[in-house]
Design a binder for these strands. Structure first.
Lengths: 124, 124
DNA sequence: CGGAATCCTGAGAGATACTG
DNA sequence: CAGTATCTCTCAGGATTCCG
């Protein structure tokens, strides 16, 4: 067997910043290049561009061009991309349950539902 | 906010080979250094050792020494480590649903339950 | 605005040999 | 058996500038 579904998924979302982009698309409804660039810490345009292209190629997102001036380009989750939400939520749930003291500065434990419903600014 | 639970989880399992080790512990019940070394493709002892130490430090696994001859050392999942199974399963489920043609050489779609119940040798 | 083009660096991985 | 010790090396990512 040359491939394993777990390994395969990891190859799609395991690179640096990919899950941050997904997270911001899912939880903050971000769609634009400079939104990602401004809100994801330490990312640079070259790397962001590379991640977006990879995600487009693997069918997680769709690149949509609006011919306005200035030009507007939006990155949107596909159905396949939206299906990753279950993984993202499980990742959040894990740290919320087992690492709340290191994850939340108020050290207050909270539920996944509480976290997902919180002000977007709580996200890094 | 300095930290995000999604990002925090990714830092714990995002490095190369970590999920492979977890997968083999969860689904194949492997516990020993040379089992991992032999079954995880392209891993070398230095990297394996590094990953195991990280996982021990973050509390995902426990290192247990048996003073026999030859010495036997087992790596066991902690409760915290076992809690990652939900993420691993979601990762498997995603590729099974959206990438079965690239993941399974027989190109036959199957359910997560079928995959988890299959012969361990199907895993890479 | 949404990138592309450069140049550059260093952390992390590969290979191999060795040891208690 | 379960690792450590080196050494090398690549390439992903960082910083910066520029373009349509």
């Amino acid at each position: 067997m040359k491939c394993c579904p777990i390994d395969n998924t990891f190859k799609m979302i395991g690179k640096k910043f990919t899950i941050h982009i997904l997270r911001n698309m899912m939880l903050q409804e971000q769609t634009r290049f400079n939104q990602f660039l401004d809100s994801i810490e330490n990312i640079n345009p070259k790397t962001l561009s590379a991640r977006l292209r990879e995600m487009e190629k693997t069918g997680l997102i769709e690149r949509r061009v609006f011919n306005e001036t200035p030009i507007r380009i939006e990155y949107l989750l596909t159905q396949k991309g939206k299906a990753l939400r279950a993984i993202i939520e499980q990742m959040a749930a894990f740290s919320i349950k087992y690492e709340s003291r290191t994850v939340f500065k108020d050290k207050k434990p909270r539920t996944l539902h509480q976290f997902l419903g919180e002000n977007p600014t709580v996200l890094k």
